[in-house]
Every structure is written in C-alpha cells, then in structure tokens.
Design a protein around this nucleic acid. Structure first.
Lengths: 179, 179
DNA sequence: ATCAGCATGTAAGGCGTTACATGATTCA
DNA sequence: TGAATCATGTAACGCCTTACATGCTGAT
C-alpha cells in the first residue's frame, strides 16, 4: 500500500465482500461509509490501477449478456493479506475537521447572532444526517445477524450516538450565547 | 483568501485577538484548537507571506530588548473584513476521517478480538484527550466571562460532549462484539 | 557544555478534489 | 427525444505534511 493512501484499504475492504466495479465502489463509499470517510473517482480509478499492478486485486470484464464494458475487480490473496495487516496495526489516525467549530471559536469578533445562526445551520444538517443514519440502523437491525452486519451496525451506532451528542450541545450552546 | 486554504482564517482568527509570530500561531493551533483543526509550519509560513502580500496582515520586527529576530504579524482592516465575511458564510465543511471506524466497518474479515482490541486503543486515546479537554474547561470556567472565553469554552464543551459519547459507544460496542 | 525549546523558512512529494471528456443505456 | 444514471478515465491544480536546514537562547 502506498504509504498514506487510505483509499486502498477502503477498496480492499469493500472487495473483501464482493467483486465490484470502480463505479460500484464509489456508490458504496457514498453510502453508510460517507459519514466517516470520503472518496472521489479521481482517487478511486488511479488506486485501482496501482493496486492491480501491485497484485492486490485482479480485474476481469463482465461477461454480462453482451452490452457495455464493465470492469470488475476481485481481491487476491495478497490483497487480503494487506487488508488484514492494516486491521492489526495499532495506530489509526482519527481526525475531525470541523469548520463550524472554527467559526465558533473565532465567533467573538462578530455579533452573537452570527454564531447562533451558524449553530442553527449545523443543527439542521446534523438532524438530516441523523435521520439517514437511523434509517440505516433500522434496515441493519432487520437483517439476520451475520458477522458483517454487526460491524456495519456498530459504525452506524457510533454515528447516531455522536450526532445526538452534537444536538444536545447545540441546545446548550445557544442557551449560553443568549445568556 | 486562496480558494480552499482554510489555514488563512485560522491565522486571521488568532491574529484578531493579538499579534503573533508564526511560531506562536503554531503553538495556539496545537492547543485547544487541535482537536478540531490542525496545521503545520509548512503551511503556516507560506500562508503568512501570501496573506501579507494580499494586505490582510502586516508584519513588524519585535523591538523586544535587543536579542533575536522575531516577526510579529498584525491583522489589518482588510484581514478583519475577510474574517468576518467567512464567519457570515453559511456553508461550512465538517468532516470526520476516522480510521478506527474504517477498521471497525471492515473488521468482519478478522477475528472479533482484533476489532475489540482496536476499540480498546481508541478508548484509551479518547480518555486521555478527554482529560486534557476537561483541564481546559476548568481553566476557562475560572476566568471572568468575556465574550471570547465563552466561545472558547463552547468548543471545549463540544469536545467533551462528543468524547463522552464515544466512550459510551465503546462500552456498547465491546458488549455487542462479545455477544 | 549541552539540550530543549524558540524561531523561520524551503523542498519534495503525496494525496485528493474538481472539472473535463466520452459514451452507453434506461426510462418517461 | 431527452434526462438521468451507468461507467471509465485523465488533467490540472491546490493543499498540506514530512523532512530538512539553520541558528539563537536559556536552563541545568
């Protein structure tokens, strides 16, 4: 794996469940993963080529009843090893980049209403995202508990727990700003 | 401000309170801000030059009782305008990049103990950081409540609220993984 | 004397986004 | 017929980190 290119393990992780096209991978990333990780086509396709060169994944064209070209990727034994090695590494970088908090921190140079307004917007967005996560949770709880679903559910629960904490904080913060 | 270079507003925000050297700015970023924003010398010094060229900040050498060179930066009226404009922009990018959650999401390919171990490590780190935040909170609550301290306190409270949510989740998650 | 911390900066290079370019298929 | 979605990729460019380079100051 290229030193710090984490998109690699995202791809390997997704391919460990099923063969996918680059386009599929993008869709998966935009789904339940999106709240803690992002990825664009501009990073996915080059990574797929590099990883195939490195022998971590293999590609084949879908013999899908004629029609258009569609390149499916499959994880190799080498790729699985890379994925497992990463899972067993202790260090993990966890970073928050919250512009809302930055605006809050420096909010003293403007009127309190400005800060309150920024909190309102943040709250709106979080409420929307929370709804989405709760929908994911509902769907995951319906399914029979195989090992993978349990893991997916845990990340969703993480999201719900933290977003609810955010919302509690919004209420407190507004109260404090209005004295 | 260069289109997406957010370090600019961090610098402007810090300079809106007091004149600082590049080195000071780095220290401030590594303090209470660090849990929701990062910045290195390699981004700070070039940004300072660019912003001075743009007239958002001005520099002068400290006439500080002889001794070594020390360049202090001061925010200009133009810089203040940029800062305020940013504070009043509605859009704000808030992103989480949590490798721990990625490892959790793909944890199904390894033994549950691996995932539990990753959660343990995460929990340890959060506990440590929570202690630091609580110390900040204690200090901020001691100080007389001027407008700035209120804003600083709110970001710290955000951190505490979310970190406590993380810790609650850790307990739940471990329980679920051990059945 | 030596080491940690103060202080400023540059260079290389990686990562990733946005925008562009292209074209097929499906559905209304 | 036209729009949305499927599908693959490239190019330009910007941001930022890491590592390097340099030297002073203050404390032990």
């Amino acid at each position: 794996m290229a030193k710090d290119r984490k998109i690699d393990v995202v791809i390997l992780g997704l391919l460990s469940h099923e063969d996918l096209t680059g386009y599929d991978i993008k869709k998966r990333i935009d789904g339940a993963i999106s709240f803690f990780w992002k990825g664009s086509f501009g990073s996915i396709y080059p990574a797929l080529n590099a990883m195939e060169q490195a022998g971590q994944i293999s590609k084949y064209e879908a013999d899908d009843s004629g029609s258009r070209k569609k390149i499916l990727y499959h994880i190799t034994a080498k790729g699985t090893k890379v994925l497992k090695r990463w899972l067993n590494e202790e260090q993990a970088s966890n970073e928050l980049k919250y512009e809302t908090l930055l605006k809050l921190y420096f909010g003293g140079v403007e009127a309190p209403e400005t800060t309150v307004h920024n909190i309102d917007i943040f709250e709106e967005n979080i409420k929307e995202e929370l709804e989405v996560l709760k929908m994911y949770e509902k769907n995951l709880k319906k399914e029979k508990d195989n090992s993978d679903h349990k893991h997916f559910l845990l990340t969703v629960m993480f999201g719900i727990e933290t977003y609810e904490a955010y919302l509690r904080w919004c209420v407190k913060a507004r109260k404090m700003l209005k004295n």
